[in-house]
Computed example of a mutant assay.
Amino acid sequence: MAETIAFTKGHGTGNDFVIVPDDDGALELTVDQVAALCDRRFGIGADGILRVVRTARIGAGASMTDAEWFMDYRNADGSAAEMCGNGTRVFAKFLVDTGRATIDDAPLRIGTRAGAKTLTRSDLGFEVDLGAFAVEGDVVVKAKGLDVARPGQGINVGNPHVVVALSSHAELEALDLTVQPQLQPDPADGANVEFVVPADPLVRGGVGTIRMRVFERGVGETLSCGTGVAAAALAVRHWAGPAAPDRWSVEVPGGILGVRIVGEADGDHVLLSGPAALVYSGEVTLA
C-alpha cells in the first residue's frame, strides 16, 4: 500500500528543500523515493530533502546529546551528504515555526552528519556556526565554458569543496554548469565546485565581497550553496593573505549571504548567515 506523508517546501536564497517531519524516526526514504520527491517535473521539486528526526532515534552518539533534532540531509539524487549550510537555516526555521524548538532565549543545536551545529538569530535571518575548517590541496578543474583548465583550492567545511577564481563576471556568466566540472585528482567522494569573482576593490568597509556560482555534487547547479559560500570566502581570504578581512559578503544567483571567521578555543570557526523561508505545506504519496 502506498504511503502518504506530510511535507513542507522551504528555501534559503533559492537553495530549496522538501522538509519531511519524521519526529520518531519511523520513515525510511529510499534513494529512488528521494529522487522522485526532488524531481522538478514529476515530483515536488527541490535540491534536496531535509528529514526532521529526533537525534535520540538515530543513535547519533554522545557527541550530539545536546541536539534534540537531527537534520538528515539527502541530495536530489538520493545520496546522503555530510552537511548543508542553507539547509541548517531552513531546518531551524521549520523547527521554530512548528513549535518543535526555540532559538530566541538560547542558541539552537541541531545534529548533522558533520557533527552538531549551533544556530542563532542574525540580521539576515539565522546564523550557523559551521565549525572548524581546513584549507586542503590544489585541484585542477575543467569546466564547460572555460577555455583552459584552472587551478582550484580545496576547502573542507564539514563537506568537501573546490574553489576556482575567475578573472571577470563575463567568465562567470559564460560557464555552462549543466555539465559537471571535471576534477583532477578526482576526490573519492566527489566535491562541490565553486567559481568566484572577487569584487574590485575586494574590501569595502572591512568587508570582503565576492560573487559566486556553484555546482553541487549529487544535484547540479543550484541558486545557492551555504557551505559553498563559506568555502568560497575562505579560499579568497586564503589567497588574499594575512591582511584579508574576517567578514565577507557573498552574492549568489539566489541572493546575498554573510560569512564570518571567528577565533574559538579549538581554532578558527566559519559562520554563515542568511535568510530562510517556508513556502507551502501539503501531503504527497510516496512512489
Rank of each mutant, 00 (worst) to 15 (best):
A92Y: 05
S168D: 08
S168T: 13
L95G: 00
G87R: 07
D77R: 04
V163I: 09
D66K: 12
G99A: 06
L119R: 06
R89E: 07
A170V: 13
V135R: 06
E127I: 15
K144E: 14
F91H: 01
G99R: 07
L175K: 01
L172M: 08
A134D: 15
F94R: 11
L124A: 15
N159W: 15
D176A: 02
Y73S: 03
Y73C: 04
D129Y: 02
V128N: 05
L119E: 05
V140N: 09
R89G: 08
D176S: 07
D77Q: 10
L172E: 03
A81R: 07
C84E: 11
A132E: 15
F94Y: 15
A92K: 06
V90D: 06
L172T: 08
V163Q: 00
A67C: 12
V128A: 12
L146T: 02
D129K: 00
R113H: 08
N86Y: 04
I155H: 05
F94V: 15
N86G: 00
M71Q: 09
R121Q: 00
G131E: 06
D138Y: 10
I155R: 07
M71R: 04
E82T: 03
D104W: 03
T88Y: 04
S122I: 08
V148F: 09
R121M: 03
F91W: 02
F91C: 00
F91E: 01
R150W: 05
L175H: 02
G87V: 14
V157P: 00
P160M: 13
L146C: 03
H169N: 13
K117D: 04
D104H: 10
P160L: 15
M71Y: 02
D104F: 10
F133C: 12
F91R: 00
G111C: 05
F126K: 07
D123P: 06
N156H: 13
L124I: 07
A149N: 09
R121L: 05
G154S: 02
T102V: 14
L130M: 14
E136N: 15
G158V: 12
L130W: 01
G137D: 15
K142Q: 14
V90R: 06
K144Q: 15
A165L: 15
A81F: 03
D138K: 11
S168K: 11
Q153I: 15
L166S: 00
D97V: 14
G158A: 13
G158S: 08
A80Y: 10
K144H: 06
F126A: 09
D176V: 11
W69H: 05
A165W: 09
H161K: 04
S168N: 04
D138M: 13
R100S: 10
K142L: 12
L124T: 11
R121E: 01
Q153V: 10
G85T: 13
T98C: 04
D77C: 07
A92T: 14
L146R: 02
I155S: 02
S122T: 05
D77I: 06
V164W: 01
G115M: 10
A80W: 11
R150T: 04
G158D: 11
A92R: 14
A114I: 00
A149R: 14
L172Q: 04
A81T: 05
H169R: 15
